[in-house]
């Protein structure tokens, strides 16, 4: 068995030595932060024109994470490319010749991508929260308020899980075109649209992103009838992630490289 630390080190070298890593993660950070800040500014300036019910259910924490709807697309690209670039470049043959224990190789890759996403996700979520709250002025939430720390920490966790989901899906699909072509529209269009359609939305709320995003809510929205809480939601997402990672492993183990 190749030493675990050696393979982890190798995967770290791989991930840090390509430009796409820096670009996608920087983009995810910037888009989430800047878009969240802009939305907070808008709410702050339009506060007086909002209806009373809107004011009552206003969720300052979740509002500051509005930028994640776009920022997560960059995370999807990151997660997909981490794995599928091995296939699209042919590097997979060199990689597996160096580490023929495929489970080992896979775990190292998932661990490195997951850890990097966790660090970037946490930095992004905490910075986005504090910047957003500063711009909300009198309507801001405090990190010590009930459920707020959970929501901010959960946002970082959500970003990490999303990346892992994409890594697993990319390992199953192999081709970056296929991976991006399925995952981007799904998370950007299909899932948000289906979750707004009556009847269908009772199913759509179990989609990984819909369930996972629940953890970022501090004030439940008025039309919320989900049967799971914030941690239940993240657990549902984690199950999706586990399934994707397992599927990716089985494909990698059983198919010719």
């Amino acid at each position: 068995m190749a030493a675990t630390s050696a393979v982890l080190q190798s995967e770290w070298t791989k991930i840090r030595s390509v430009r796409s890593t820096v670009w996608t993660l920087a983009l995810a950070f910037l888009v989430t932060l800047v878009l969240g800040a802009v939305i907070c500014l808008v709410f702050n300036s339009q506060w007086d024109s909002m209806s009373t019910s809107d004011k009552l259910t206003f969720d300052p924490t979740n509002t500051s994470f509005f930028g994640m709807t776009l920022g997560q697309l960059a995370l999807i690209v990151f997660g997909v490319l981490v794995f599928s670039s091995e296939y699209s470049t042919g590097m997979i043959r060199t990689s597996l010749a160096a580490v023929p224990q495929r489970g080992h190789f896979y775990l190292a890759k998932v661990a490195v991508a997951g850890l990097l996403a966790l660090v970037v996700g946490m930095v992004t979520s905490f910075l986005t929260f504090f910047v957003g709250q500063a711009l909300l002025g009198p309507h801001k939430a405090q990190i010590g308020d009930p459920g707020v720390l959970r929501a901010v920490f959960g946002a970082g966790l959500y970003m990490t899980l999303l990346v892992l989901l994409c890594v697993g899906a990319a390992a199953m699909l192999r081709s970056p075109m296929l991976g991006l072509g399925i995952l981007m529209p799904f998370f950007f269009l299909v899932s948000p649209i289906l979750s707004a359609v009556p009847k269908v939305k009772s199913v759509a709320r179990y989609f990984p992103d819909q369930a996972g995003q629940k953890i970022m809510q501090v004030v439940p929205s008025s039309d919320d009838h989900t049967h799971y809480g914030p941690w239940g939601g993240i657990l549902i997402m984690a199950i999706w992630v586990a399934a994707a990672l397992l599927g990716g492993y089985l494909v990698l183990r059983n198919r010719d490289a």
């Binding site: 070298t13 796409s20 091995e86 590097m91």
Partner: peptide
């Protein structure tokens, strides 16, 4: 071409 083109020659060999 079993090499990631975005990686430098040095880094390619280093990760191996």
């Amino acid at each position: 071409k079993a090499i990631h083109g975005g990686r430098t020659a040095y880094n390619h060999l280093l990760c191996l």
